[in-house]
Design a protein around this nucleic acid. Structure first.
Length: 288
DNA sequence: CCAACTACCTGTTAGC
DNA sequence: TGCTAACAGGTAGTTG
C-alpha cells in the first residue's frame, strides 16, 4: 500500500516526467475514479484538457499538480488532486505502448507520451480542487502535516496526540495530527518505540507520543532512501520499478517469526477490520 | 466535537 | 476442479 515514502517516490518521478508538460487530452476510462468530482468524468475531462503542469506537490498520501495560469481556464480550479488509495499508480507509457484493464484515467501529453492512472482496487481518485491561501488544495486541508514537511513540528504533534484518549495506532492512521502513516509504518513505528497499538495516547503523554512519531519518521525516511516502495507489483514508481524496503520490515507481515530484538514470536491480531503486527514481549498489552 | 464503525472495491490465496 | 470465504486496507460518511 502506498504510504508516505511510496507517494513521495511517485511524486518525484512525476515531477521529473510531467513538469512543464501540457495535457493535450484527458480521458476518464472508469467513472469511479472521478466519483468525487462535481460533474463527474465529463467535468474532469473539460477542466483538465489543455492545461500545463507547473509543479507536483504532496502532503501525506495526497498528491497534486498545480497548473500554469491559462486565460482559457480562468476561474477553473488550480490543482489536480490525486489519492492512490490501496493500489493506485501513475505510469508513463511511450507513444507505441498499449493500455490495460486497470487504467482509470489517461492523459495524452504534448511530448507524445501518455500518462496513465492505474488502480486495480479502485479506492484511488482524482479531483480538480481549488488551492487555498496556504497553497494546499481544499480537498487536502483537513489532514495534518507529514513528517517530511519542512514545517512539521514534532513537539506540537506529540502534544496534539497526547491530548486524545484514543488508541495511539488509531490516531496515527487517522491522518489528523500527523499524515502519511498507514498500517505498515504504524506497526513498524510502534514496534521500534516498544508501544502497544491500543495504548491510549494520553497515557503515553507527549514524551511517549513524541517517541512514536520519531520512530515513524525514522522508519519512513529509511524506506524512502531504500527505493521508497515496498517490494510488491502493486506499488511501483512512475517507471514501474519496485523498491526493496519490505526486506527491512521488522514486524509487518512477520507473524510467527522471531522478533529481531528479543526472539519472541511476532503475533498478528485483528484491528478494526484489518491487522496489527506486534511483539508480545517488546509491546506488551496494557493493564486496565 | 470526538470516537468508533462501515461501505466501498477486486485480485489472490486458503480451505473444503 | 470448482466453489466459498478470508484477506489486503485508506478514506468518507454515518452513527453513537
Amino acid at each position: 500500500v502506498p504510504e508516505l515514502p511510496e507517494v513521495e517516490t511517485v511524486r518525484r518521478g512525476l515531477a521529473d516526467a510531467v513538469t512543464g508538460r501540457r495535457l493535450v487530452v484527458t480521458r476518464v476510462e472508469h467513472p469511479r475514479a472521478t466519483r468525487r468530482q462535481p460533474g463527474g468524468p465529463a467535468a474532469f475531462e473539460q477542466l483538465t484538457t489543455g492545461r500545463t503542469i507547473a509543479s507536483v506537490r504532496r502532503r501525506g498520501k495526497y498528491l497534486w499538480w498545480t497548473f500554469a495560469d491559462d486565460p482559457d481556464h480562468a476561474g477553473s480550479p488550480d490543482a489536480l488532486v490525486a489519492h492512490l488509495g490501496m493500489s493506485g499508480q501513475f505510469r508513463l507509457v511511450e507513444p507505441d505502448g498499449g493500455t490495460d484493464d486497470h487504467v482509470r484515467v489517461q492523459w495524452l501529453l504534448d511530448d507524445g507520451r501518455t500518462l496513465v492512472f492505474r488502480d486495480q482496487r479502485t479506492f484511488g481518485w482524482v479531483l480538480m480542487s481549488d488551492l487555498g491561501d496556504s497553497g494546499v488544495p481544499e480537498s487536502v486541508a483537513h489532514i495534518g502535516r507529514d513528517p517530511f514537511d519542512p514545517a512539521f513540528d514534532p513537539a506540537r504533534t506529540a502534544a496534539l496526540l497526547a491530548g486524545s484518549r484514543a488508541g495511539i495506532k488509531r490516531l496515527l492512521l487517522a491522518q489528523r495530527h500527523v499524515s502519511g502513516i498507514g498500517n505498515i509504518y504504524a506497526d513498524e513505528a510502534l514496534w521500534r518505540a516498544g508501544v502497544h497499538p491500543d495504548t491510549p495516547a494520553d497515557r503515553l503523554a507527549p514524551e511517549g507520543c513524541g517517541a512514536v512519531v520519531a520512530a515513524a519518521t525514522a522508519v519512513m525516511r529509511q524506506a524512502l532512501a531504500s527505493g521508497g516502495t515496498s517490494f510488491d507489483p502493486l506499488y511501483v514508481s512512475v517507471n514501474g520499478e519496485s523498491g526493496w524496503f519490505e526486506r527491512s520490515l521488522d514486524v509487518y507481515g512477520r507473524a510467527g517469526q522471531p522478533c529481531r530484538r528479543c526472539g519472541a514470536l511476532i503475533v498478528r491480531e485483528r484491528f478494526t477490520n484489518r491487522s496489527s503486527h506486534r511483539c508480545p514481549v517488546c509491546q506488551p498489552a496494557q493493564r486496565p
